[in-house]
Design a protein around this nucleic acid. Structure first.
Lengths: 331, 331
DNA sequence: TGTTTTTTGTAAACCGGTTTACTAAACTTC
DNA sequence: GAAGTTTAGTAAACCGGTTTACAAAAAACA
């Protein structure tokens, strides 16, 4: 910029005015001189320097649990597009649900002066987020919720999703229903609430829950867990798969074991994915309105950035969308 | 930092030394005083200010054509993980193959002082990249190549993928083979070379290419194009789908029209995706070694950043991996 | 013509760190 | 105890922009 100023024979300040299109302090001759100088020198401004002074970077961070689920990736695509249109860039990271990694990533992003964060939070970091909120740092929770933390959140109505998935099986006469979920020990609301919905649905149909029917494991254990559950003498006749990864693993297992769906086993998935529709038979699922969730979260954060008030506390829970297909046998 | 310095009753310089763990200029008493002051003030350093002086940000950009293909997203997951381990953050964007958007995104990332870029380049921006290379700005091409531009690239051996996919059909006796690709007009090497491979395979088997068998369209036109191609009297008996999105659209079309695979139509896809394995029958594909490609590109860029020399010109073309399944009928 | 007002522009501080060149004090060495 | 060497630490310039307060020149006005 100094070079441009010298070349155009004006001051640095004037060049800065020019770059910010504040032409009122400038004759058209000066304007032209600067334009030429910039052109000749191939000058382009350093956004970092600007950010330092102005205390904003027009960068936001999207921190998800994993980048290997379709859900996160579609969310990312949606969010990126909203922010790109708003002139923001998106920086990403995956925590693999490791709370300390989550904290260190967020701290490093804040050190990098991102303007805001959209994150899949974990329960263990409740205090950490509370502090962020007190410091009025703009954060939006997505996919998950932390009770008693005043940070806006956008997510699926998970209890309802668990409930409706289970009800689809119950309505067709299934009494003995299994459910597969990622580990419940981490207290991740998504998981806990889907299970709660499952319990509620059973209760509504006056069915006692059988804890042996709840498989809580990592994706690489789905195979053995399913095999051992399904070979029991009173094995469930229907299964709820609580996310896309678990549905995928289950379908792989189904193929390998040549199990007939829905005659030998009925299935319902949460998260709609392309292979649910391409499988034979097509799998009934409860879809998350991913685009709605992503757009809402992005706009919420943009609003927080614009109003500069972290006073916004809005919580959105979206209803799941039933995709009725052919993976449930009527008993 | 000034506050910390005052609180600890030392100079700003000393605090800076402390933060950078250059303890040699410091007594242990001073060290402790600074530690306490930082603790008390809850101070954390501003990375932007550091970047301004040090001229690096430890941020790189990943610019892909679209975030809706499985391929890009898996690549992203891989790349993000390598860079996270190396202490870098990844900023992302999608160009939708719009060359001017591509340029403006890259310019804005450079203005933001990213340390390097991994990009899916488009032909039209050849000159633009040439200039970047002359300025020694670290760029790695991924998935695609630009002839006569000395920028390292990491990609599938696309010609070979097209060749092998076609050969699988030819080997089973197919003579009349169609291929579906995204528009060829944009000169995107991935597309062009896969078609070249297709031609070469046909030539090898002494078969004249029939241009009517080449469908070049966007994903929302696949349906009508396939319908019109396949209803002709000498319709192809086998089809090569040149990427995951086209395979998905084709499988949807197949289901809707109740076409028996492979009896009524044989299929081979390029890009292995989970639904290829879950479909009935399982679809034969040529997989890209996505992890290898991603890791290689990431490490290449890291190397360029470390050696500070844009003198590295390495081109990697990875062989596709045949996943032989049951979607080809033997004639 | 002298006084205001407007136009055009600048100097200098600032953002929050890093780094270089320099020095006072303490310690060795002979 | 003089000279040399370490140790511990600082002042000030710098990175590349923005912004505020101030001012000279030109234009308008009386």
């Amino acid at each position: 910029m100094k070079d441009v100023a010298e070349q155009a024979d004006v001051s640095k300040s004037t060049v800065s005015q020019y770059l910010n299109k504040r032409y009122s302090y400038m004759s058209s001759a000066t304007r032209e001189k600067i334009r030429v100088a910039i052109e000749e020198l191939g000058y382009y401004p350093n956004q970092i320097a600007k950010s330092l002074k102005q205390k904003n970077t027009h960068v936001i961070a999207f921190i998800c649990a994993t980048l290997s689920s379709r859900f996160s990736l579609e969310l990312l695509a949606t969010i990126e597009s909203v922010f790109q249109d708003a002139g923001y860039s998106v920086i990403i990271a995956a925590t693999e649900d490791d709370p300390s990694k989550e904290r260190s990533l967020i701290n490093s992003f804040i050190a990098r002066q991102v303007d805001g964060i959209i994150v899949f939070p974990t329960e263990e970091n409740r205090d950490f987020y509370q502090k962020l909120q007190q410091r009025k740092f703009p954060v939006v929770f997505i996919d998950r919720l932390l009770d008693n933390v005043e940070i806006p959140s956008v997510l699926l109505d998970n209890k309802r999703a668990g409930y409706e998935a289970t009800r689809e099986l119950l309505k067709q006469g299934h009494q003995n229903i299994g459910i597969v979920t990622f580990p419940l020990g981490d207290n991740i609301t998504t998981r806990v609430e889907r299970i709660q919905g499952y319990k509620q649905a059973l209760a509504k149909f006056n069915i006692e829950m059988n804890t042996a029917n709840v498989i809580s494991c990592l994706s690489n254990q789905v195979d053995t867990e399913l095999t051992s559950l399904l070979k029991q003498k009173n094995a469930p006749t229907g299964l709820v798969l609580t996310n896309d990864i678990l549905l995928e693993k289950t379908l792989m297992w189904v193929k390998r074991h040549h199990i007939k769906i829905p005659n030998e086993l009925s299935l319902v998935g949460i998260d709609d994915v392309v292979f649910a529709q391409l499988f034979d038979p097509e799998i009934t699922t409860l879809a998350q309105p991913i685009t709605k969730i992503g757009v809402r979260a992005a706009k919420l954060l943009l609003k927080m950035l614009a109003t500069d008030s972290s006073l916004i506390v809005e919580d959105y829970q979206y209803a799941p969308v039933l995709k009725q297909r052919n993976s449930i046998k009527s008993l």
